[in-house]
Structures are given as C-alpha cells and as structure tokens.
Nucleic acid binder design. Structure first.
Lengths: 363, 363
DNA sequence: GTGAAAGCGCTAACAA
DNA sequence: TTGTTAGCGCTTTCAC
C-alpha cells in the first residue's frame, strides 16, 4: 500500500541521469544573459521606444509595415517585455496566492480547480504554494505572500500563521475559517453539522463502539479541531461512553489511515464503526481492515469526510460527508475579489459550506 | 459513477447564497483604494523614503527606534511594497508558469508536486494554468505565459500551441516532448518502450483480442499519438489481426473510460483484454465491465498507463505502466533552470522517463 | 544613521 | 503615424 511513494523503484530516469554527466548545478545561473530592453529594440530598428511599444501591444496607430519590421527585430533580438515594468505602469495585473496543504491529497486539486476557474474568469494569475501543514512552512509562505501577490486564499492550520496572515495589509481569505470571528474573511465549512449528521447516522444504525481516526497534524497545531470535539460531544449527548484509546492519530494519507487502523485493531478489535477525519484516512483504514480479515460494513463500518471521488472506487464504496470543494474555492476567490474591490473585512458576506451525508456501502 | 460532478446536488452553500443578497459583482472593483506608496509612509513619518525602505527590508543601517516607528506607521497606513517596483529593480525574482491539462486528473497533481518542490528549492514562484487540453485554451495560455512568467513548463497537446510556445523568446520546457526534435527542451516519456512492454506482457499471457481505449482528445489534435500507433505496430509485429472497432475513443476520465467500455462491449463482447490510454480510462472501463457482469481478469484483463495511486484502490488492483510523475516535474524545472541560466536549447541534456510495468491483479 | 540622485523598463498623455 | 515627456514605486549607489 505504498501509494505515491516518491522513491518508487519501478520508475527511473536512467538515461537522463547518464545524459547529465556531472549533474545540474541548481541555483547557479552560470551565464545569465542580460535582458533585452525596449530601448534596444527601438535603437536597432531606428524608431522610438513608443513605437516599439505600439507594435508589441498591437495598438492601432502604427504603420503595419513598421510594426512587422519591429516585431521581427524584437523576435530576433530575443526581446520580451518585462512584466515588472508593465505591472508598474498598468495597475490591473492581479495575481493571487493559493496556499494548500498537500497537492497529493485529492481534496486540494478540487479546491484548486474552483480557484483556477474563478480566477481565470477575472483574468487573474494564481501562484500556488504547498505547506504540508507544517508550521514553519506555513509561516514562510505567508511571508512570501505579502511580497508576491495581491491577495491570498489559503488553507492554514496553525494559529500563528493565520494571525500573521490576517494582521497584515494583504487581502486575505481563509479556505477554512473554522470558528474564527466573522471579521476574518473566509469560508466556513460546517463540520459541526456534518459530523453530527454522520455520527447520528452511525448511532442510528445501532453502532455504539465508534472509533475515531484523527488527523495527527492537529495534535501539534494549536487549532480547534471541530471534528474530534464533535465526536466527543455527540457521543456524550447520546450517553455513549467513549474509550479514549478509540481515538487514534493518523497521518493525513491513505497509508496513515491504514497504519492507524492497524494500531486501533490491535488494541480494540471490538469497535463496530470508524469515524475518520477524512476520506483519505477512511480509505486507508478500510483497506487495511479488509486485508486483516474484517468484513465491511458487517464487522466494521467506515464513515469518511470530504466526499472525494476516489471514495467511489474502493470496495465497498465509502459512505462520507461530502464537501463541495470546487465551490469552496470559487467562493474564496469571490471574497478575495470583494476585498480587492475595497470592501472592508467585516462587510464580506458570511459563507458556509454544508457537508452532505452520502450513504454508500461502507456504513 | 458520477465522479467529481461539479453540479453534484448533495452539496450546497445555501446560507452563503442567502448571505450574498444580490450577489457578487465580479470584475467590478467598486471601490479600489489607491496604493499607499513608500513616499507617503516617508512623509507621514518625517523621514526619507530611503529610510522607510531600510526599515521595511530589515537593513542594518538604521536606528532601531526609527525602524519601529516606521514599521508601525506603515502597518497602520496599510502600506505594502509593490512587487512590480521591487521586481524592476531587483532582477532575481523568478516566476515560472506551469501548464497542465487537468488538475482533477491525479496525474497532474503528482507532476505539480515535483514542480513545486523543485521550484521552491530555487526560491521560484509557480503560476498554474489549466487548459483542459482545449486547443483554444492552450493557445491563450501560451500567450499569457509570454507576458507573465520568466519560464514555462508545460503539458501541451496541440501542435500550434507548442510551435508558438517554442518559437518565442521564453525559456520553455515540455512535460511531454514526444518525438520532437532534440533541440526542443523537454522530457521524453518513453511511451514506446512502455507500451511495447505492456502489450507484450498481455500477448505473453495469451491474449489475442486486445482492445484499445484511446484518449479522444488526440482525435482532434494534430499530435502524434504514440500509444495508439504503438498498439497497432506491436500487434502487427506479432501477426495479430486488429479489428479497427477495438479502438474506442474515450473522454480522459473515469466516466469516459466507463462509457467507452460499454460501447466496446456492445459491439465486441469477445475481447479478452483492454489496453487503455491511461489509468483513469482503465479504471472506469474496469469498473463498468465488472458492473456489467464480467470477471476481471478472467473474462477481460485491464492494463493502464501512468501508475496512479488510485490504481491500487480498485478491485482488482490495476496492472499498469508506471511513470515517475514527480520526477518528471522536477526534471522539467531543472531544464528550465538551465535555460534561464543561459544554456542554449540544444545543449540541454536529453531526459527520458522510462515507464515500468507494474503487474497487479487486473491483468 | 540618514538623505539625495539616478535609474530599473515600460506605457499614457500629449505634441508634432 | 510617430516621437517626446513624464511618471509608475522601488532599491542602489554615493554623499553627508
């Protein structure tokens, strides 16, 4: 079950390695050729730099013949306008930063799809950053953001990273604002409603010994973890005692879910259902459980969270709390647009995504 | 099997919609506040703009007290340095453009992971563009690239888009250069070797009636399609007659593979194996075949191409030709670095990724 | 420790 | 149709 293992031995770039002979020397641009400027093109073609600008930008007020001559020369000289010089003078080039935890978790490509689409509609560029949910990395990326983009749309776990991001002067939107103040722009995913619906479904099906496979990243982050708290709360409300060892931390991946499930089973073979932090963990857990001889859902039922497409691929298909991830990305960009448009943070309309229980065969 | 359906009814942002009342008006920044400049901060604090610059950039030659005063004022005034002005003066801020076909195809997140990592090591930003492999979109994106980035790393299908991209003055690397001239920088994925190994494996297992589920996007693109040609060639070499209707075009997705499989079966229930353009199509096909009562691999075997992680999730696990997608992304960035460093296009070392046959249970 | 001057490469506005 | 002038907002000299 070594999924997406970067050191996978079955794949090589052998001939490439040969071809390199001595290897690349990253970071050391040996021979950086100096930029060709508009003035040089102007000089070479004997016109003013304004005329070159007209040719390059396809303006109308220019002799077609001159334009072609200039274009050819520019091409031949290797001229390309500097985006910095351009951006300085035209104030309408917008770039937003999209910060995600992990490209390899299918949750984020879907969010990204929504962000890219919404951004494209507005003619914005999107710079992508990956944090792995590491605190250090999150802080670093937030710093980058201030320097490099006009607005940030971010999935951030750590409190200090969020604090830093929202304290600055950069329009900033959280992809999961959790229980934060209304004045912090961002989308709220109603984990409370979702988790409650999911757990009550399990309880309604007669389950009493329900384990939870939690995301271990929350252990180190000083972030409120709604899913775990909700689990405790709902179980309490229904008067169902919870053994604290039913909660197992898992790395946020399929392998992580599998490992956590194995740990859980070695201590508590008697659990009848598993409420997982998300689909990735649920899928790994379910796969491992079956490999260890359990029948799903008869011996153990599995409930995921996220509604990833791949949940439909596994056997049996995963019951889950589906989040409209694409819409999440779109809304975030819409909020960024409002902020960029001058709206103050507390005027941004409240945005809530409601997870929906999708009952398939695993629970 | 409606995977990743954007119009999925099970997910809403109802309260948000309520909250919006009248809706967002995208593209119409109502109230765009003018940029606060360094001069304004200087004026407000009674120092020169130079000193403000020192404070902002953490230079040493400045009175700590002055610095703090300036920083506070800047923060209060909502000052943020313009990246354009900065970039104009410091020539070391590099942004590359990553062009992919579809974020939702797990192939690309893996490539993206490699690109992001390699770019981060160099302190580069990565702007991401999604084309859906539409010709129009590809051409558009290539244009953007010229304006917006310092180098391009792209997965492009259409010949004219590639021609345009490589003709310009932008350092440009193809993520799949196919059979293009050595002087076109890019990574070559050895589909020929891969497909041959895969098909000969099937043939070796006794299969004679081997169908192919092809990517329909290649039908419209004037691109060479190695996988299909190889299929024909290898079958020919082994003296195995091919019914042209064994080749079914499929949309590049799980649903697409499923639909194509259904079409194939309605005409040719007698095929014993399927060679799919990629894993997504193979998975959809296999799922549908099983849903229609076929046993895999007994009645029909399936061979994918790509080596996606999700191939391990399906039942039975997918036999596939694995490509090291992450490495692919990394190599492309390394090539871009060489180009950016001044190396000429024909000096870039040859890079080949060798697909590896991973035999699992589906074939 | 601080300021003044120069200029990065481009486009908008105005003249010619 | 073309050229000239004036910045865009910042950092890098180089004085003080």
């Amino acid at each position: 079950m070594a999924l997406a293992d970067p050191s996978h031995p079955t794949c090589t770039a052998a001939r490439y390695a040969e071809g390199v002979q001595g290897g690349y020397s990253p970071n050391v641009p040996t021979n950086r050729k100096p930029r060709v400027t508009i003035d040089q093109v102007a000089q070479a073609t004997g016109v003013s730099r304004q005329t070159v600008s007209r040719a390059i930008n396809n303006k109308t007020e220019i002799d077609p013949e001159t334009r072609q001559r200039i274009l050819d020369a520019a091409q031949a000289m290797g001229y390309r306008p500097s985006r910095f010089a351009r951006g300085l003078v035209r104030q309408d080039l917008i770039t937003i930063g999209l910060v995600i935890a992990d490209v390899l978790n299918p949750f984020f490509p879907e969010v990204t799809a929504g962000v890219l689409e919404a951004a494209e509609r507005r003619g914005w560029q999107v710079v992508v950053y990956n944090t792995g949910s590491e605190r250090r990395k999150e802080l670093e990326v937030v710093d980058m953001l201030f320097d490099q983009v006009d607005a940030g749309v971010a999935f951030l776990l750590h409190h200090d990273a969020i604090a830093k991001a929202t304290a600055g002067n950069l329009p900033f939107v959280l992809l999961d604002k959790g229980g934060r103040a209304p004045a912090v722009p961002g989308v709220r995913i109603d984990f409370e409603g979702g988790a409650r619906r999911g757990l009550e479904y399990l309880i309604g099906r007669g389950h009493r010994r329900i384990a939870m496979l939690d995301d271990e990243a929350y252990l180190s982050a000083e972030a409120p973890n709604t899913r775990r708290e909700l689990y405790l709360k709902v179980m309490g409300e229904h008067g169902i005692p919870v053994d604290i060892n039913w909660i197992q931390p898992a790395h946020n991946s399929i392998d992580g879910g599998a490992a956590a499930m194995e740990r859980l089973l070695s201590a508590h073979r008697d659990v009848t259902a598993v409420f997982a932090y998300n689909d990735l963990i649920a899928i790994g857990a379910q796969l491992r459980a079956r490999a260890l001889g359990l029948r799903v859902p008869e011996d153990c039922a599995f409930l995921g969270f996220d509604g990833l497409s791949i949940g439909e691929l596994v056997e049996p298909p995963l019951t889950t709390l589906h989040i409209d991830k694409r819409r999440l990305g779109e809304i975030a960009v819409e909020q960024a647009a409002l902020l960029l448009g001058g709206m103050s943070e507390d005027e941004i309309p409240e945005a809530v995504i409601e997870p929906q229980l999708i009952v398939r065969a695993s629970a």
